[in-house]
Structure formats: C-alpha cells, structure tokens
Design a protein around this nucleic acid. Structure first.
Length: 242
DNA sequence: TCATTAAATTGTT
DNA sequence: AACAATTTAATGA
C-alpha cells in the first residue's frame, strides 16, 4: 500500500466479460470494432488512487466496467466538492478529449473498481470514421449537460432528501449508465460521500424515499421503483427551501 | 454443499 | 461518533 496517492495504474488488456460491459462497442461496424478493440486497456484502481487529476494532459477517454467512481474538484479554498458518482457503464471525459485539453476534474474510485481507457488518438479516429460512435457521443454530451446543471443546483439545497434523491436519480440515468439495472450496488456510506451528507442523514433520507415508494433499500444497494418520482422530489423540494 | 467465522453494512442512540 | 444487530463473503471440512 503506497503512502501517497498515485495516478499510476498497472494496465492490462480487457477480458471478454469486461468488453461486454462497454455499451458503445456494439454500435460500431465490425471493421471499426476490429480496428480499435486492441487499443483498449483496463486498470484496477483502489480507493485513494487517481484515475485522472486536474491539470494533467488528456491521455484516455475512460469508462467504468465495475465499481463506483466519484468526479470531484477542489475549489479556491482547497475544499473538495463532489459533482457526481459514475457507476458501471458510464464513460466520461469526451469533452476534454475532443478539445485535447487537460483534465478539469479528479476521478477517484470509492471502492476497488475496474476502469477501461481508450487512447485519445483512437478516440479521434472513431470520431472521424464512425457514425455510430458519433451518435453515442452526442447523446452522452446532451445527457451530461443536464446532469451537471442539476449537480450545481443541488449544492444549494439543504434538504437531505432532495440531495439524496438527486444523487440517486443521477446514478440511475439509463442513457449515461446503461450498465446499471434497477438495482444499484452502493453503500449508504458511499452515497453519503456523493451527496455531501453524513451516513446517518443518508439513512434517514433513504427510509423516507422508501416510504414514498420511490426506492427499495436493500443490503449494500438500492432498487429503483420510480425514477420520475425521484426527479420530482429533487425539484419540488428545491422551491421549499428558498 | 454445509457449517463456522470474519468482515462489511445497516439501524439506532 | 460509537454500538449492536444483521447480511454477506470467505474458509475449510
């Protein structure tokens, strides 16, 4: 166990089962897929490791195969603020890869995870050659824009129920995270990190949302019953505490 | 496959 | 923040 957090990750080729977790591979033509599949690499980051850090030059476009990541940023005072959680099936960083800028956020696993990476050059090759890939990216950018706005607004909310509802609604987004079924593997402690609340408060909020029949709380996870209802809660409560 | 034990997670003060 | 109860995962016969 290293004493200092590191961006170094041991890379390896993806297994067959891991490739099946990549939602956009199936949108490529066979020849395109043959071309880029060998370029895919995976790593196994642990909590404390960085998948990418603010300011580092873009090397890969990343996707979650398994586990759970958090996207965060440090403000001027050095306070860390978490924007969103990224569950399995989620791919991120396309905006910065497109512009060949440096990363604008930190990405760290909340638990041991498996992360896939597509080299920036390969990403650009797909943008230039694959219609299916471009469709995927367009959907992705559109959905994430909405999520970022929701994340911004949620930081002004002080109502724990709406904050937890917002985090859950984000994680259950079927467009961004097709790898998440109706049950999401997440502990209440992890949810507390993402929502910026204590575990106790998250626990209470989850019970309340369960009573409203929006979710079902299980050991080590949450089952979604009513996604639209969750989204409604996070909006309704917003006007309450102005 | 089952029983035992350790570890993780949850519910409550 | 600490504790007890519950669920899961790991181990080995």
């Amino acid at each position: 166990m290293p004493a200092h957090p590191s961006v170094y990750q041991r890379r390896r080729p993806p297994t067959r089962m891991e490739l099946d977790q990549i939602p956009w591979l199936g949108l490529l033509r066979n020849d395109e897929r043959q071309q880029i599949e060998p370029q895919l690499v995976v790593s196994d980051p642990q909590p404390g490791d960085y998948v990418c850090r603010v300011g580092r030059p873009v090397t890969y476009w990343f996707g979650v195969i398994s586990g759970l990541l958090k996207m965060s940023n440090d403000d001027a005072r050095g306070q860390t603020m978490t924007f969103l959680g990224i569950p399995p099936g989620g791919w991120f960083g396309e905006g910065t890869v497109l512009k060949r800028e440096s990363y604008r956020y930190n990405i760290q696993p909340l638990r041991p995870s498996v992360v896939a990476g597509l080299p920036a050059d390969t990403f650009h090759w797909l943008v230039d050659h694959s219609l299916g890939f471009n469709r995927f990216i367009m959907h992705q950018l559109n959905e994430r824009l909405g999520q970022f706005i929701a994340a911004r607004e949620a930081d002004r909310l002080n109502n724990p129920e709406s904050r937890v509802a917002r985090s859950l609604a984000g994680l259950f987004n079927p467009v961004l995270y097709p790898g998440v079924g109706d049950v999401l593997r997440i502990t209440q402690q992890e949810l507390a990190y993402l929502a910026g609340l204590s575990r106790q408060r998250v626990n209470e909020a989850l019970q309340a949302l369960q009573t409203m029949r929006l979710i079902e709380v299980t050991y080590g996870g949450v089952r979604i019953l009513d996604l639209d209802g969750l989204r409604r809660v996070m909006i309704e409560r917003r006007s309450d505490n102005r």
